[in-house]
Design a protein around this nucleic acid. Structure first.
Lengths: 336, 336
DNA sequence: TTGTATGCGTTATCAA
DNA sequence: TTGATAACGCATACAA
C-alpha cells in the first residue's frame, strides 16, 4: 500500500559514487559511457526501481509524449470504437492518450482544451460536439502551436486538418437500393438542423433523389433532437401524413431503433409497410430476427486511426502536413 | 496552423517590468499582492494567452492532476460505460484521465503501468485483463507510492482497494426465476476457467442450485473462451447431451447473442425449447422482438464511479482509505 | 570516459 | 507589497 518516493538519477549517482550526468547518459545508452559503467548504472536503476520522470524530461525535449483526445461521449459505440483505435495507434507510437469528453457541451469542450494546453500535450484530436460552432475553435487554434486534427464531426474550415466520412456515397446507395425495390416515397429523419452532419445528410438526400429523378417532398424531411422522444415525434410526423412514405433514411441506427419500436406500436410492420436505412452500421443488427433493410457504415475506427496518423505526422513535422490535410472516407451501405 | 511557443511567467514579468514571483503570486491570487498589480498581471496574461505549465508546476506540488485508467478494451460496452463515468468524476475533480487499453495482454498492461509511472500520475484505476494473475501486480504495487484501485476484474488479494460486482446475488435471482418457471435442468456456460470471474460464477451457480435443492449436473457446466467459435462449441456440447438442459445461465450477453444464433440454426426455439439469462444487461435487448428471459445488471458506471471516488480519497489522503477498501455491489436480475 | 554547470517554468522561502 | 534566489529531475554543452 505504502512505498517510497520515486527514485531519482541523483540518488543512483550518490549510491554509485559517480555524477548524475554519467547516470543520465548511461541510462540513455550514450556512446561515450563505458560498457562497465553503463551496466552498473542500469543494474542499480533496476534495483532501485527507477522510472524516468516524464514531466522533468519535458523541460529539455519540449515534448510530453501525450496527445489529447476530445470526444462528445465515450459510451457511444461510434466513439468508443474511435478511442479504441486511437489509443492503439498512440500506444504503438509510445504516446499516452489524455482523455476528455465534452458531452456536447461547448464550455466543457473549451475547458478540456485549456486543460490539455496546461498539460502541454503534443497534439490534439477532436470530434466536435453537436453544439459547437465552426468558428469557436478559430482563436483557440490561432493562438497555439499545438497540432490539431479534427475527425468525424469537423468544422467547415479549410485551414485545418480533418478526417471525416462522406455521407453522400452511402446515401446514394441507400436511395438507389430503395428505388430498385420500387420505393418512390422516401423520407429523411434527420438530426438537429444546426448540426453540420445534418446539413450534409439533407444535401446528400436531395442529390441522391435528384439522381433518381425523384422530386423531393418537403414534408418528407423531418428533424429529431436525437432524444427518444424526439425520435418518436419525428416518426409520428411521417406516419400522420396522408401520403405516408414507405422508406426512411434515418440519422443513425440508434434513431432507427426507436423508429422501429414506435412503428410496431402503431401497427406498422417493418420491412413490409415501411423500410429503414440509417447511418452507423452498429454490430447489433446481425443478432436481430427482423433487422432494418440496411445501414451505412462510417468506419469510426478507420477514420480515427487516420486522424491519429495525421496528428503524429504533424508532431513529427512530416513534410506533407505543412498544408491542411482533408481526408474523406466514403460511407458504404451494408444491406442486412 | 502555426503559432508561438507558450507564454511563460517570465515573459509576462519582463513585459510588465516586475519580477516573475510577483506575476506568479498575482496569478494565484496571493493576498500579499496589491489589487492593481494583480489586475495588471491578469490582463497581460490574458492578452498573451498565458497557460500555466502543468509539467513545471508538478515539481513544486508533487502532483500532476492526472489519473491513469487501464481497461482491457475500450470498445466493449461495459468498459466504455465505465470510462465514461470515470472521466466525468475526474473532470469534476479537475483531473485529467490518462488512458491505456491492455487488450487482455499482460505485457501491454505492465507497459502501460510503467508509462503511467513515468508520467507520475497521481493514481491508477485498473480493471485487470483476463490473463493477468493475482500476483502479477504485487511487486508493482509494493514498489510504488501511487494509489491503486481495482475494479470489476479484481485480484483475490486483501491488501488492495477494490470495487466489484457480487455475481452471486444475480445468480440466485436467475436460478430462482428459472425454478419458478418449472426448470430443473439448468446449465452454465462459463468463461475461461482461469478467470476469477468464472470461478465466482461457478461457485455462485452451485450455491444457487443447492439453495433450490437441485444437485449439480457436471455435464451442465461448460466453458467458452469467449470467441464466437468458443461460444458455439460450448452450446454444441450442451445441445448434444442426451438430457439437454432447458435453461442456461451464460457468462455475458455477448455470449448469449451467439448462443441464440446457434440455437436458431439447430432449430431450437428461444424462450420455448430453451431459456437464457446472462450477465451484463446491455441496452440492446429492449429492441429485440424476442429477447432472452433476462439479464443480470452489473452497473459498470456505478462501479467505476465508486472506484474513482475511492481513488480520489486515496489521493486526498482521506482517513478511511488507510485500510484497504473492498466495495461490493450486488448484481441484479432484470427480466425482459 | 567522466564531471561540472546550466537551464527548462514555477513556486516557496527569505530578504527588502 | 515586492524582489531575489533556490529548488524540483533531467539532459546537455562544455570542461577536464
Amino acid at each position: 500500500m505504502a512505498g517510497n518516493k520515486p527514485t531519482t538519477i541523483k540518488e543512483i549517482a550518490r549510491k554509485l559514487k559517480i555524477s548524475p550526468s554519467t547516470v543520465s547518459r548511461a541510462l540513455n545508452d550514450h556512446p561515450s559511457i563505458g560498457l562497465v559503467t553503463t551496466m552498473r548504472v542500469k543494474k542499480m536503476a533496476e534495483e532501485m526501481a527507477y522510472e524516468p520522470n516524464q514531466t522533468a524530461i519535458f523541460f529539455k525535449q519540449r515534448k510530453t509524449f501525450t496527445i489529447g483526445v476530445i470526444l462528445p461521449k465515450l459510451s457511444e459505440p461510434f466513439f468508443s470504437e474511435a478511442i479504441s483505435a486511437i489509443e492503439t495507434v498512440a500506444e504503438d507510437k509510445k504516446y499516452t492518450v489524455l482523455l476528455g469528453q465534452s458531452l456536447d457541451n461547448e464550455n466543457r469542450e473549451a475547458q478540456i482544451i485549456q486543460t490539455f494546453k496546461k498539460h502541454r500535450v503534443d497534439g490534439i484530436l477532436i470530434s466536435m460536439g453537436k453544439n459547437t460552432g465552426d468558428t469557436d475553435f478559430e482563436d483557440i487554434l490561432s493562438k497555439t502551436e499545438i497540432p490539431v486534427v479534427f475527425f468525424d464531426c469537423v468544422p467547415d474550415l479549410d485551414n485545418v486538418h480533418k478526417v471525416y466520412s462522406d455521407l453522400s456515397s452511402g446515401m446514394v446507395e441507400a436511395i438507389d437500393a430503395f428505388v430498385d425495390r420500387g420505393h418512390r416515397k422516401i423520407a429523411l429523419i434527420n438530426g438537429p438542423e444546426a448540426l453540420l452532419a445534418s446539413k450534409e445528410r439533407s444535401e446528400a438526400f436531395l442529390n441522391a433523389l435528384a439522381k433518381q429523378g425523384i422530386s423531393a417532398e418537403e414534408s418528407y424531411i423531418v428533424h429529431t433532437d436525437l432524444t427518444e422522444q424526439g425520435n418518436e415525434e419525428a416518426m409520428e410526423k411521417l406516419c400522420s401524413l396522408a401520403d405516408r412514405p414507405s422508406a426512411v433514411v434515418s440519422f443513425n441506427d440508434f434513431v432507427t431503433l426507436d423508429l422501429i419500436r414506435y412503428a410496431k406500436q402503431r401497427g406498422i410492420i417493418l420491412n413490409q409497410d415501411m423500410f429503414f436505412i440509417s447511418y452507423a452500421n452498429y454490430p447489433l443488427w446481425k443478432y436481430m430476427d427482423n433487422p432494418p433493410m440496411g445501414s451505412i457504415e462510417q468506419y469510426p475506427d478507420v477514420q480515427a486511426q487516420k486522424a491519429a496518423e495525421i496528428l503524429f505526422d504533424c508532431i513529427d513535422k512530416k513534410e506533407h502536413v505543412a498544408t491542411p490535410q482533408h481526408v474523406v472516407f466514403p460511407s458504404k451501405l451494408v444491406l442486412k
